[in-house]
């Protein structure tokens, strides 16, 4: 699909079995995509594959991609993003988060390209993953190809566990360990959920994550 000059395309995908988007942006257009995978079957081991390919073909575009997946059992989610800045003056922001429990598997492939003509581009790609079990697995493949010199581009990927010192701090205030875990996981997930513009949808999701950590 094509987002016309100056138009805005904003979509939130919740628990879709897979999101595939191919978007071309004309000058000054804005695209914002939020993908949330929170309630994948715990028993069936669903495999979800998201593929978002966005090209900024006109100047001064803005692209935002936010994704959150919370996986259990033998769930598997792959999220792939391909963002190309073909011309200059555009911005792109990507925040991709995974929370992985049990034997689940997550994969992020993030391909960010800034073409030689895309001067004064600002691009940020962040991937943060939280492992809740020893047997969960996360694979991250960020790929940056930057051919212009006057750009501001950052990328970062990290995978870790819950902060033990934060858990103890909360326990020392009387909060039981399970509840403390939940507060930390929710805090991690909220960063993505808070990007949802529709208040009703946002609040519904924020309410639904209370109690998902077991």
């Amino acid at each position: 699909m094509r987002v016309s000059k100056g138009d805005i395309f904003e979509r939130v995908f919740i628990n879709e079995p897979g999101v595939n988007l191919l978007i071309e942006q004309e000058a000054g257009s804005r695209v914002k995509i939020v993908i949330v995978n929170l309630e994948i079957s715990k028993s069936r081991g669903l495999e979800v594959s998201n593929n978002i390919t966005i090209s900024q073909l006109g100047e001064g575009c803005s692209t935002e991609i936010y994704a959150l997946a919370f996986l259990h059992g033998s769930d598997s989610v792959t999220t792939e993003t391909h963002v190309t800045h073909a011309v200059g003056g555009g911005t792109s922001v990507q925040l991709i988060k995974f929370v992985l429990d049990d034997n689940s598997r997550g994969r992020f492939i993030g391909d960010l390209k800034i073409a030689p003509d895309a001067q004064q581009t600002e691009a940020h790609q962040t991937n943060r993953n939280l492992l809740l079990s020893e047997t969960a697995e996360m694979r991250t493949q960020p790929q940056l190809e930057i051919y212009a010199d006057d750009v501001k581009a950052t990328h970062g990927a990290s995978t870790g566990q819950l902060d033990e010192s934060a858990l103890f701090y909360m326990q020392q205030r009387g909060i039981d360990k399970q509840k403390a875990r939940q507060l930390l996981v929710n805090a991690f997930m909220k960063e993505v959920l808070n990007t949802i513009g529709d208040e009703r949808v946002r609040e519904q999701l924020l309410n639904s994550i209370d109690g998902v950590v077991e």
Binding site: D163, M170, G174, I175, A187, K190
Partner: peptide, 21 residues
Amino acid sequence: YPVEIPGVSMTNFMRTALNEK
């Protein structure tokens, strides 16, 4: 060395702690 807990508000934290007690 008090621990920083990003994303958990003081209000939510303190209210949870106090009500548990």
